[in-house]
Lab assay of single mutants.
Amino acid sequence: VSVELPAPSSWKKLFYPNKVGSVKKTEVVFVAPTGEEISNRKQLEQYLKSHPGNPAIAEFDWTTSG
């Protein structure tokens, strides 16, 4: 189950709350306009370098507050 949070234009930000008793931590995933899922800052940096014209990296908020 995921919750969609505010994201930069043409992107989606999905929040996957951890299940009770789960060892997996809460996860935030950005979905690029191409449909590619980005789950960490390093991936995001690589994606933005190879896909010019996207929002600046500073516009991506990895917190769950939206």
Results as ranks from 00 to 15, higher is better:
residue 16 Y to V: 09
residue 65 S to V: 11
residue 20 V to Y: 10
residue 19 K to M: 13
residue 46 Q to T: 10
residue 22 S to K: 11
residue 5 L to M: 13
residue 20 V to F: 12
residue 34 T to D: 09
residue 59 E to A: 08
residue 46 Q to R: 11
residue 22 S to E: 11
residue 45 E to G: 07
residue 56 A to Y: 06
residue 11 W to E: 05
residue 32 A to V: 01
residue 52 P to Q: 05
residue 38 I to P: 00
residue 56 A to G: 12
residue 43 Q to H: 08
residue 14 L to C: 11
residue 5 L to Q: 06
residue 11 W to P: 04
residue 41 R to M: 14
residue 51 H to A: 03
residue 56 A to L: 09
residue 11 W to L: 04
residue 51 H to D: 01
residue 44 L to D: 00
residue 27 E to C: 15
residue 1 V to M: 12
residue 20 V to G: 11
residue 53 G to T: 04
residue 27 E to P: 11
residue 13 K to I: 05
residue 36 E to W: 02
residue 50 S to Q: 11
residue 44 L to H: 00
residue 66 G to A: 12
residue 44 L to W: 01
residue 40 N to R: 04
residue 30 F to Y: 06
residue 32 A to M: 01
residue 9 S to E: 15
residue 26 T to F: 14
residue 64 T to I: 14
residue 9 S to N: 14
residue 19 K to F: 13
residue 29 V to H: 06
residue 65 S to K: 11
residue 66 G to Y: 08
residue 48 L to R: 00
residue 11 W to K: 05
residue 46 Q to A: 13
residue 8 P to I: 04
residue 15 F to S: 06
residue 5 L to R: 05
residue 18 N to Y: 11
residue 64 T to N: 09
residue 46 Q to H: 09
residue 63 T to R: 08
residue 61 D to L: 05
residue 59 E to V: 05
residue 45 E to K: 10
residue 1 V to S: 11
residue 35 G to H: 03
residue 33 P to T: 02
residue 17 P to C: 15
residue 37 E to G: 06
residue 28 V to E: 01
residue 48 L to V: 03
residue 17 P to T: 13
residue 19 K to P: 14
residue 15 F to H: 07
residue 54 N to P: 07
residue 6 P to M: 07
residue 21 G to A: 08
residue 11 W to D: 06
residue 59 E to R: 04
residue 1 V to R: 09
residue 41 R to T: 10
residue 20 V to R: 09
residue 37 E to C: 14
residue 5 L to E: 05
residue 33 P to L: 02
residue 58 A to G: 12
residue 23 V to L: 14
residue 1 V to N: 11
residue 21 G to P: 07
residue 27 E to F: 14
residue 58 A to I: 09
residue 63 T to K: 08
residue 47 Y to Q: 00
residue 9 S to D: 15
residue 47 Y to W: 04
residue 14 L to I: 12
residue 32 A to N: 01
residue 33 P to G: 01
residue 65 S to Q: 11
residue 33 P to E: 02
residue 58 A to D: 15
residue 50 S to G: 08
residue 15 F to Q: 06
residue 30 F to C: 01
residue 47 Y to N: 00
residue 20 V to L: 11
residue 14 L to K: 07
residue 18 N to S: 13
residue 44 L to F: 01
residue 12 K to R: 14
residue 41 R to A: 10
residue 46 Q to E: 14
residue 61 D to H: 06
residue 8 P to L: 05
residue 56 A to I: 07
residue 4 E to N: 08
residue 11 W to S: 04
residue 51 H to F: 06
residue 24 K to Q: 14
residue 57 I to H: 05
residue 45 E to R: 10
residue 9 S to F: 09
residue 58 A to F: 10
residue 65 S to G: 12
residue 64 T to P: 13
residue 54 N to Y: 03
residue 42 K to F: 14
residue 58 A to W: 15
residue 27 E to N: 13
residue 4 E to H: 08
residue 19 K to V: 13
residue 50 S to I: 09
residue 4 E to W: 08
residue 8 P to W: 04
residue 60 F to Y: 03
residue 38 I to A: 02
residue 22 S to P: 09
residue 6 P to Q: 08
residue 14 L to T: 04
residue 49 K to M: 12
residue 34 T to Q: 02
residue 17 P to M: 13
residue 39 S to A: 10
residue 11 W to V: 04
residue 31 V to L: 11
residue 51 H to C: 02
residue 39 S to I: 13
residue 16 Y to K: 08
residue 4 E to G: 08
residue 11 W to T: 05
residue 32 A to G: 02
residue 64 T to V: 15
residue 61 D to V: 06
residue 14 L to D: 02
residue 1 V to G: 12
residue 29 V to I: 13
residue 57 I to A: 09
residue 23 V to T: 14
residue 56 A to S: 13
residue 24 K to A: 13
residue 20 V to A: 12
residue 61 D to I: 07
residue 24 K to N: 15
residue 9 S to H: 13
residue 5 L to W: 07
residue 14 L to M: 09
residue 62 W to M: 02
residue 30 F to K: 00
residue 26 T to S: 14
residue 33 P to K: 01
residue 9 S to A: 15
residue 44 L to Q: 00
residue 24 K to L: 14
residue 62 W to V: 02
residue 20 V to I: 13
residue 51 H to Y: 06
residue 38 I to C: 04
residue 2 S to P: 15
